[in-house]
Design a protein around this nucleic acid. Structure first.
Lengths: 131, 131
DNA sequence: CCAACTATTCTATATATGTCAATACATATT
DNA sequence: AATATGTATTGACATATATAGAATAGTTGG
């Protein structure tokens, strides 16, 4: 019995708005690439930046894992931060040139997705309001 | 090493455009609900309708499985088609009232997603073109 | 009978996601 | 000095999802 991705939209009073949809999580990867293309930074600040994009419910460990995965894929690279700051050493990520290529292909796909969603909403509204 | 969802955008000459992105697949569920809200139908025709929405690369078995999952969740119900047609018996799916509720919450989320993507694209373009 | 098209299901395997706990350093509080 | 709080990242486990290909089956036309 499916419960998380498939089945997301069922959440009622309990979690709606608390728990993210499958669409949101699928946008995490490009979101991180976009943020890193602005300037190199570490996971913790990315976590905060994601909020400003509307991705409020993503668990930190998911973000960190995604970063590690993208580093494995060589889309990003990290170095330990040299200057001491408040807290343990932190990993500063930056885009590689391959990462830049990947980002442009993602931007393309974001536009496709935008189209798809527009089509879907148009089709859904054609029935109800129609106004 | 991740390859499918995470890592999708790496595909170059080989698959780009042939293989769908994680975003696309995450839109399958609402797409099916929207299509079924227009009128009850079976998987095979849904397969064709999805193309018109821009979801050209989704494997039939993924669509059928999603339909079965959504039936388990009681968002849709199926009956075997009574009138004989070309081919084996087919399962006609229709939305339940719970399915209608779920659809509206999905429509909401589609709008959120639209916003997020818009934000992301705006932010990405602020750096490059800017024009 | 065989090919081609319509239609759906099953199974194996690969990946992704959610969640929780653990680790660790720095600074401020009691 | 012990403790709490905030910053920062990692690991491990269970479960959910995705992908592809093969299997099954009825219908129509040659």
């Amino acid at each position: 019995m499916p419960r998380h991705r498939r089945g997301w939209a069922m959440g009622r009073e309990n979690n709606m708005g608390e728990r993210h949809s499958p669409v949101t999580i699928s946008l995490l990867e490009p979101a991180l690439l976009i943020l890193l293309s602005e300037h190199p930074q570490h996971g913790y600040t990315l976590l905060a930046e994601l909020q400003t994009l509307g991705m409020r419910t993503i668990h930190p460990s998911v973000v960190y894992r995604t970063l590690r995965d993208m580093e494995l894929l060589e889309w990003i690279q990290s170095d330990w931060d040299t200057d001491q700051t408040q807290g343990p050493p932190r990993r500063i990520y930056r885009l590689t040139s391959q990462g830049e290529f990947v980002l442009t292909s993602w931007l393309n796909e974001l536009e496709n997705s935008q189209e798809m969603i527009k089509n879907m909403l148009a089709r859904a509204n054609r029935q109800n309001g129609e106004k």
